[in-house]
């Protein structure tokens, strides 16, 4: 009995210490450092034009990548779980590619294909669309690296709920579109929202792939993580910490929002 109790307490403290060392202490310390010179430098660095531009660009990529990957992820999960299509195995393996490949490699491959000397680069350039060193390239890179989250979260949920509810809706006269909106989507909503939170976190914070394709032009092709790095390298520590804090706050807020929604529903 006591041995069992000891193990339980031991495990609990190991877990807490692990989280504290890796997560709470560094983040907490960063927060303290941000305000070390008072509130004014923080406000100044927030209102810095380059900082605002970086925040805007980051939010724009998130606003494009998240809905795109949510729709794609749900469609992919449905295809993988509910259909008998040939080539499911290939899709299943391909979806995980962004997890497996280093973001730098993703960035480089995008430059290869969409850069001025790449396959699509020149034709697109002729149409007046610049991909690399411009917003479209950043969006493509972010979409790529945050692709698997929704699908990976939704697949197990779809498998677990089975297709009985969908079949039942069908016998009751429901068409497939109606069944998707009224039955399937509500049943997988927590899987989807968790996938969305993860996608968003990744899209907000992506550094490697974006840094290769963006060209890091201040005020134009600099996302918030790139801006943080530049500030840090140029010894603007308050600016770096402030922007980092903004990133962390946005991510935490989404996580919190999802948890609150979930708790509220469980109470009902």
């Amino acid at each position: 009995m006591t041995g069992e109790r000891l193990t339980r307490w031991g495990l609990r403290y190991i877990a807490l210490a692990y989280l504290a060392l890796l997560l709470v202490i560094p983040l907490g310390y960063m927060m303290i450092e941000t305000f070390s010179e008072g509130i004014q430098p923080v406000l100044d660095s927030i209102t810095e034009p380059d900082s605002i531009a970086a925040l805007k660009l980051t939010l724009l990529t998130v606003a494009i990548a998240v809905p795109l990957n949510t729709v794609f992820g749900i469609a992919c999960a449905l295809l993988l779980v509910r259909s008998n299509m040939r080539g499911k195995g290939i899709i299943n393996a391909l979806i995980d590619m962004p997890f497996a490949i280093s973001p730098i490699v993703v960035g480089l491959s995008l430059v290869l294909v969409y850069g001025t000397s790449g396959w699509f680069g020149q034709p697109l350039m002729d149409l007046g669309i610049q991909v690399i060193f411009s917003t479209p390239g950043i969006v493509i890179a972010v979409v790529f690296v945050s692709l698997p989250f929704v699908a990976r979260e939704v697949v197990p949920v779809l498998q677990e709920i089975g297709d009985d509810q969908e079949k039942a809706a069908e016998t009751l006269g429901s068409g497939s579109w109606n069944t998707f909106w009224r039955i399937t989507l509500p049943a997988i909503r927590w899987g989807v929202s968790y996938g969305v939170v993860l996608t968003m976190a990744r899209a907000l914070g992506e550094f490697g792939a974006v840094s290769v394709v963006s060209g890091k032009i201040s005020g134009q092709t600099e996302t918030l993580p790139l801006y943080v790095q530049k500030q840090f390298e140029t010894f603007h520590s308050v600016g770096a910490y402030t922007s980092s804090l903004i990133l962390a706050v946005i991510a935490l807020a989404t996580l919190l929002a999802m948890n609150l929604m979930r708790r509220k529903e469980n109470d009902e």
Partner: peptide
């Protein structure tokens, strides 16, 4: 004829209740 047009009532072994 698709299921939804057959006007059959079907009851599943594990209820298939719409949980939400």
């Amino acid at each position: 004829k698709p299921v939804r047009n057959r006007n059959v009532g079907f009851v599943f072994q594990h209820y298939a209740a719409f949980k939400h």
